[in-house]
Amino acid sequence: MAIKCKAKMKDGMVEVKALMKHEMETGLRKDSKTGEPIPAHHITEVVCMHDGSELFRCNMGPAISKNPYLSFTVSGPNVGDTLQLSYVDNMGESDSGEAVVK
C-alpha cells in the first residue's frame, strides 16, 4: 500500500498531490457492540524529501479524513527530479511513495 503521488510543474511551482490509505481513527468513537472506545490511530507526519533534504512536512491531527488526500505547491525541484513521500502514524507504522516531477 504505497502512497499514491503525482508531481507536476505548473507556473514555476511544483504541485504535489498524494493519496494515502489510512483509517484515521479519532479516538472519539465507540465500538457499537461493546461500547468500548476505539483507540486513536491516525497519521501524524507526512514528509516530502527532495535531494536528501526536507522540502515539505504536514503534521496531521485526527481531524484529517479517512484515506487522506494532501496537495501542496512548492518551489525548488525541477522537471525530472524525484520526490520521496513518507508518512508515520501514532502507532509507529509507516509507508512511502515516490513521484517524478513532470
Binding site: 511551482m13 504541485e15 479519532t26 472519539l28 526536507e54 522540502l55 515539505f56 512536512r57 504536514c58 503534521n59 496531521m60 491531527g61 485526527p62 481531524a63 484529517i64 479524513s65 487522506p68 488526500y69 494532501l70 496537495s71 501542496f72 505547491t73 512548492v74 518551489s75
Partner: peptide, 23 residues
Amino acid sequence: PAPLVSTFVMSNQSNVAVGTRIK
C-alpha cells in the same frame, strides 16, 4: 473538539497552496 486539524511546515516558500480533506 480539538480545533487544530493540521500544520504544514516548509522553508521560505512563497504563494503556497495546500489542500486536504478534513472532518
